[in-house]
Design a protein around this nucleic acid. Structure first.
Lengths: 342, 342
DNA sequence: CAACTCGATGTTGACGTCAACATCACTGTC
DNA sequence: GACAGTGATGTTGACGTCAACATCGAGTTG
């Protein structure tokens, strides 16, 4: 019933509690922070007054006093992209376990310019460190805009030589996908890529190419998609016309889903005539028609490690050495892959 | 190259700039805040000094001074649940457009106790308002723990009589799904529910029941799921055995996907023998086998409205009247529904 | 040219917290 | 019983910002 308007600024402060309890603010502070050296009787009295007055420490004053915000900023582009929410969720949980809070710093479009903007905007934000979670190239200039007292960890990007980086094993996952298909007897593996701008996509494409080359297989021209099932479907319609195509590696599961559909529409049974492998292992992939063989990413683990890395820097008050911490991926074989038709 | 350790606390303050530029801190403040009444020459000089020293306003000091944090807290359970990330993304964007930042406040398990904990924990957080985004019942006691100077908007829950609430039109969506199926000629519609604890699920179940009753149709026993495709699959295995079952309304698309798979495994063609309708319209639903008829939720709009509602309260410095703002949902007819077999 | 206006800039203090230091009342010692 | 020691509690000031008020000098007016 107190949810009335105009209540701003009436928050009870340490001074109010001190006055009401008949002690000094310092004593209240000691009680609030659980310090010893306060008589049990006094402590109880103060505690009671705090409760009665509904006292809550003011975090702005604390932050000002301590020079720390107990907050980590996460700069990101599309939170709703596959896996991102799992990662952010894990970051949040991990941070919370150490008393830190997460602040979201959105970037409209991940152009160099905008990322730069986010970096400089953030520098006046109340954060002790940042996790950069944008799957595109970081502009070189960004380092200039970075406030020197904020630590940085980068997720899924190519800043390993400048910042600590956490990444899923895109390369290993891709190689195991290609290897799986080759072992089944396919002559080569076709590929549907993600958008050009995506760093993850480019790496998958590169690893796919390398895997084929090192196995001495021909490298068919990749088909460009945009992560969506629709683009996978479009790619599938093209690929279905090609009798040589017996195995496709899609850069994510959504596109693989589109492929599955396109092949079904074109009467090219999966895995009978064409095998399909995806990437991500999204919820439901096991129930596609057919259940999708795919590369599972541990999005949550990426988040946990990012948070830990950043927290470690804050604790040590020192930047982590650049370099990349790679989170394993794992091929999950289901029913969308089989030997090529005889 | 400045990313060295131990740099904490060296952030340049308004005082440093003032000293360097040979003016008072107040003048720097005026320049920093774009106030008039500063000679262009002075302004330029100060601006230059700020740049040279890399000055960034300290938001903790600002917050302390103004009594506002320019921050909105979002209390949520699982960020990675369907649609949640879209909503949060929209909240973040909307808030950012008004200079507000989003802080994530996770709740491990949405028990009454934990939600309460989040509420009280949050009260010492640096937030001006909260969006409660937990699809479970809010404990009555929560209101007690709520700091009186923080505004609240609730998403997808049943607090409409206490707080401003934003919600998707679960009822309308469910009714249109059921109506669609009945219009196709099905005698009745079976239902796979979400978990018992979910408020959204319970409402969908209730609306489904009401829709059938008001149409004078028999109400078959609902099958309980847990949102996952696996649970949908399990439900489908059961339902497939029942020759009376010709139409199923699944409380979400993941479970619908599981149903599709189960019916396919059991040789019950969709939509030939059984029609399936889902809820959510997740990415890829249009590429399921067959493309899924489902109820589309506008998750982003829910987020935008929540943010706007909360921002409006902050601006007006007054709580919004309780009541619910309903975001429309829309039936998207695709190929998983058809007339029942003759 | 004294009185006054007005625009530019400076000074002071307060927001809430808490570290560092100061004080005060005991207790026990010789 | 004067004195050091100890533990509980109080006082002061500083963190960075900015509103309110103060000052100061140049231009205007009668």
């Amino acid at each position: 019933m107190e949810q009335k308007g105009g209540l701003r600024g009436k928050r009870t402060s340490i001074t109010d509690v001190a006055a009401a309890a008949g002690v000094s603010t310092q004593t209240v502070s000691r009680v609030a922070n659980g310090f010893t050296g306060v008589l049990p009787a006094t402590r109880e009295r103060v505690l009671g007054t705090m409760r009665a007055l509904g006292y809550r420490p003011n975090s702005a004053a604390r932050a000002l006093r301590h020079g720390q915000f107990k907050t980590i900023g996460v700069i990101l582009f599309r939170l709703s992209a596959t896996g991102k929410s799992e990662t952010v969720e894990a970051i949040t949980a991990q941070a919370a376990s150490e008393g830190y809070t997460i602040t979201l710093i959105p970037v409209d479009v991940p152009t160099q310019h905008n990322v730069l903007g986010a970096f400089s905007r953030m520098s006046e934000l109340a954060v002790d460190a940042v996790i950069v979670f944008i799957e595109s190239d970081l502009p070189d200039a960004s380092i200039v805009e970075l406030p020197p007292d904020v630590y940085v960890v980068v997720v899924d990007s190519d800043a390993g030589d400048r910042y600590r980086t956490i990444d899923s094993d895109q390369d290993g996952g891709t190689r195991s996908a290609v290897a799986h298909l080759l072992e089944l007897g396919h002559r080569t593996v076709w590929h549907v890529t993600g958008p050009e701008a995506s760093f993850a996509s480019r790496r998958r494409t590169r690893s796919w190419r390398l895997a084929l080359e090192s196995a001495g297989r021909p490298v068919p021209p990749p088909v460009t998609g945009d992560w969506s099932a629709a683009s996978g479907h479009a790619a599938g319609l093209v690929l279905a016309e090609n009798p040589d195509c017996t195995a496709v590696f899609a850069a994510n599961d959504q596109m693989a889903l589109g492929l599955l559909r396109a092949f079904q529409e074109r009467g090219r049974p999966v895995p009978g005539e064409i095998s399909v492998v995806g990437f991500d292992d999204i919820p439901g992939a096991a129930y596609f028609a057919p259940p999708l063989t795919t590369v599972r990413q541990d999005f949550a683990e990426v988040g946990r490690r990012s948070a830990r890395a950043v927290l470690r820097q804050i604790r040590a008050d020192a930047a982590a050495p650049p370099g990349t911490d790679i989170v394993p991926t794992r091929l999950v074989v289901r029913n969308s892959t089989a030997a090529p038709p005889a």
